[in-house]
């Protein structure tokens, strides 16, 4: 290609430059160019959620997004949420509740859950709260399941994933109080 578009992204707080083939997805840019392999490629078609990252505070499927389109964007991947030495509240809860089996979907689950908690705090409705004019006063397991429906777990660790998210939300509430 004659044209190699450029973009400057902030990834986990660090400035990173992209310039290259416009076909490069954000997912491949993270994994192949930057070596941030925490973000996983599952289906590569936006169906499984393994590639979920947080862009400007919102979770998206990084496989269905071109790196060139993220000029100026702030991106958080699993590497930016916590480290082995300093796990995030969600990461600790996933460990405590065994919220995984093989672990392949876990980075996407945790990035997705982190953004989901912010969505709930912002008062975003879901299909489970049948009346979109009202937010549920308590976040039920059904509510968590609906809001996490974009993340598949082939091992079927869903019960433990829901438990981990519920505990992380409660722990963060406690800190907030």
């Amino acid at each position: 290609m004659a044209h190699r578009p450029a973009a400057r992204l902030t990834i986990n707080g660090q400035s990173q430059d992209f310039q290259g083939d416009p076909r490069r997805t954000l997912l491949d840019f993270l994994r192949l160019d930057l070596g941030l392999t925490g973000t996983k490629k599952g289906c590569d078609h936006g169906q499984c959620g393994a590639c979920t990252v947080i862009v400007n505070g919102r979770r998206i499927n990084s496989c269905l997004s071109l790196a060139a389109m993220h000029d100026g964007d702030e991106i958080t991947t699993i590497e930016g949420l916590g480290t082995p030495e300093a796990l995030s509240t969600l990461q600790k809860a996933f460990v405590a509740h065994d919220g995984f089996q093989c672990g392949y979907c876990t980075p996407g689950q945790i990035c997705s859950a982190a953004a989901m908690i912010d969505e709930i705090r912002a008062g975003w409705p879901s299909a489970v709260g049948d009346d979109p004019t009202e937010m549920p006063t308590t976040v039920t397991d059904d509510e968590i399941r609906e809001r996490m429906s974009g993340n598949l777990c082939r091992c079927g660790a869903y019960d433990n994933i829901v438990s981990a998210i519920r505990e992380a939300m409660a722990a963060e509430e406690e800190v907030a109080q």
């Binding site: 936006g46 959620g49 979920t52 979770r59 998206i60 499927n61 269905l64 997705s112 953004a115 989901m116 969505e119 912002a122 008062g123 975003w124 409705p125 879901s126 299909a127 009346d131 979109p132 004019t133 809001r147 429906s149 974009g150 993340n151």
Partner: peptide, 26 residues
């Protein structure tokens, strides 16, 4: 659009339909 307070109040059908589709990421 689905989270907009005006849409949720006066055109809730639109919020409901959007929330019935795809995933939060999409």
């Amino acid at each position: 659009a689905a989270a907009d307070p005006r849409i949720r109040r006066d055109w809730p059908l639109l919020s409901r339909a959007i929330l019935a589709g795809a995933s939060p990421q999409l």
